[in-house]
Design a binder for these strands. Structure first.
Length: 197
DNA sequence: TTTAAGATGCCC
DNA sequence: GGCATCTTAAAC
């Protein structure tokens, strides 16, 4: 039923990929069962020109190294107490990534509740980049994992509604980059994260 | 070796 | 609005 998508899917312009990811599934096959979420919000980060990107000015470190590889790898990193998940984008040596900011629970909601806490309302289970990784059980162990490989992969979706666009969330102090319209989400979807400065 | 900062989220 | 709490990078 859920099968990894083709490598060619990742090989497109980064802004295009960020939009194309909307409506596709993230699948995590765990011992406890299948966890599936439908991607409803993404953001593009395009080093070396993009001041908000970790790879700004081709900064190449242990953390950013995966962004210089071929597209389709998972770039996970720790943000305070949370793990955030990116899909590496752009050709080799072009350090782009697409941050997955929100998903809509499709399968395994019981386990997602266990991962997130029983008192959390359904709409708040996965409506943020740190929330969805916790719900899906995604940790730093997936840094450098390729998203065509089980147990964590992208799977073909069944389409999406209208795409809305906005500036990216939570990038203060990055000059012009603050205004780039590189956040994409499915219009009117209740699982999209709250916009913050 | 030490320190600061961060693509967040939860609680007060 | 404060603060948790972890990884990395850059300062010293």
């Amino acid at each position: 039923m859920y099968e990894p998508i083709d490598q060619s899917f990742f090989e497109k312009d980064t802004l295009e990929l960020a939009q194309q990811l909307l409506g596709h599934y993230i699948v995590h096959e765990q011992q406890t069962g299948l966890l599936v979420g439908r991607i409803v919000e993404t953001e593009a980060y395009q080093g070396p020109e993009d001041r908000a990107a970790h790879s700004f000015r081709n900064r190449r470190t242990k953390r950013t190294e995966i962004m210089f590889q071929k597209p389709g790898y998972a770039y996970t990193y720790q943000m305070h107490t949370h793990t955030l998940l990116n899909v590496v984008a752009g050709s080799i040596e072009t350090p782009h990534a697409v941050l997955i900011r929100a998903i809509e629970p499709v399968l395994g909601m019981e386990q997602m509740r266990l991962n997130r806490g029983a008192h959390v309302k359904e709409v708040n289970l996965t409506n943020g980049p740190g929330k969805l990784t916790k719900a899906l059980g995604i940790t730093m162990q997936y840094y450098g994992h390729h998203l065509l490989d089980r147990p964590l992969f992208i799977s073909q979706g069944e389409g999406r509604k209208e795409i809305a666009v906005s500036p990216r969330v939570g990038i203060g102090n990055t000059g012009d980059a603050v205004h780039y319209p590189w956040r994409f989400y499915e219009k009117d979807n209740p699982f999209v994260s709250k916009y913050r400065l």
